[in-house]
Design a binder for these strands. Structure first.
Lengths: 212, 212
DNA sequence: TCGCTTTATTGACACTGTGTCAATAGACAC
DNA sequence: GTGTCTATTGACACAGTGTCAATAAAGCGA
């Protein structure tokens, strides 16, 4: 046997190692779905051993939760423009700003699709991720949208028979699912045409429902 | 020690055992989410041992796929009324039939919610379930809806700028997600009011989008 | 009723992936 | 250089899966 040289142990700053693991996870999820992501598979991309993972994260669900942290705020921030605007300016103005917010949200999905898809997949398998994703992000978005719809109904911009809470929930869930479906698949970047078609369909449904 | 009497082995017809396992799975899913469903947990409700499971099903994903079999056809059948109707009779008629189809679909979800939720959860974890659910059921529904929208656009019932394929996908995904969210939670039967509100929100969005 | 055949059923095993911990060995301070 | 700190890991225990040869219940023919 000639082998036997073991790879020399390297030692990094904890923060650096943690960043390396997060990056490895992102890189993994850009290629393979969450269901195939094992701790071993991620750590293979870092040069560290599997047990080292547990020095930084409790398990793969915590890892994926950490990946969400930056992105969640981004989504909320983008949509905030329409969401928190007042109802002055009429339907035209509201539609335009809504379209803008939707495009912003879509672009976030386009950029972070695989990670968001991973979070959404993980939410089904782990109660803590479900908490953070569904109740932390989605439900919060829904509440804000419901508020906005409420104001638009009172201002006469939207029809009075609209149930703000339920309508908001349906629209937000639609947007989440549809964007995940369109932009959340690992490694098949959607064409420009598809992107526009997706955005157009979302805009049509939202605008016709609220200001149609 | 006094113990030691082993439970007497019982022997059933294969078909009976298989039905017992399917029933045990349904009963399990009425109480607990799919992520907690282990082969052991299901077989404990049948009086059979864990290995017996593998005489009837390849794994728990195959089990859950079998649970879908009857229900999937039901969903397609209910929606078929609106879906396959012609575009004569104007928007009023089309809206009414659509509302009817939606109510039918909602009622199916109301009855089989936990099982459907389990399938949808399992689809995230297993490629074969994903195939059956997403591409077999959801996509098939989407295609039929897209056809109907296409005809309505040509007949002048729906606006010409509607993209039938994309709109259908968004609407079907919305309906699936929203109904799962409302009626798919194990063991919390929704109130009559909630049921009506959910149905109303769906009807509003579909009708305003297509015939608004 | 008895013995024989069929096959439903299971105990025991191997395997994969998880999470833990005591022991090891780089990196930095002095 | 020497010593301390702590990042890193080999080895372990565990949960759940899927398999298979051995077992025994049911049905059948006499």
């Amino acid at each position: 046997m000639m082998g036997g040289e073991r790879a020399p142990r390297r030692r990094r700053r904890p923060e650096e190692a943690e960043r390396a693991i997060l990056a490895a996870a992102r890189s993994f999820l850009a290629e393979r779905p969450f269901r195939e992501m094992t701790v071993e598979g991620v750590m293979a991309r870092t040069g560290l051993s599997r047990p080292a993972f547990y020095a930084y994260f409790g398990d793969r669900y915590e890892l994926v939760t950490r990946l969400l942290e930056g992105i969640g705020g981004l989504l909320l921030a983008v949509d905030w423009r329409w969401l928190s605007g007042d109802s002055a300016g009429g339907r035209e103005a509201a539609s335009a700003v809504l379209a803008d917010a939707l495009r912003g949200g879509s672009e976030t999905f386009l950029e972070y699709g695989p990670v968001l898809r991973a979070i959404s997949d993980a939410a089904v398998q782990d109660p803590r991720v479900e908490e953070v994703y569904r109740y932390g992000l989605i439900e919060r978005l829904t509440r804000v949208v419901a508020d906005r719809i409420s104001r638009d109904v009172e201002a006469g911009l939207s029809p009075p028979d609209l149930d703000p809470e339920e309508t908001a929930q349906a629209l937000v869930l639609m947007t989440e699912r549809y964007l995940l479906d369109a932009f959340g698949r690992p490694s098949d970047p959607p064409s420009f045409e598809r992107t526009e078609a997706v955005f157009g369909a979302l805009e049509t449904i939202w605008v016709r429902t609220l200001y149609g």
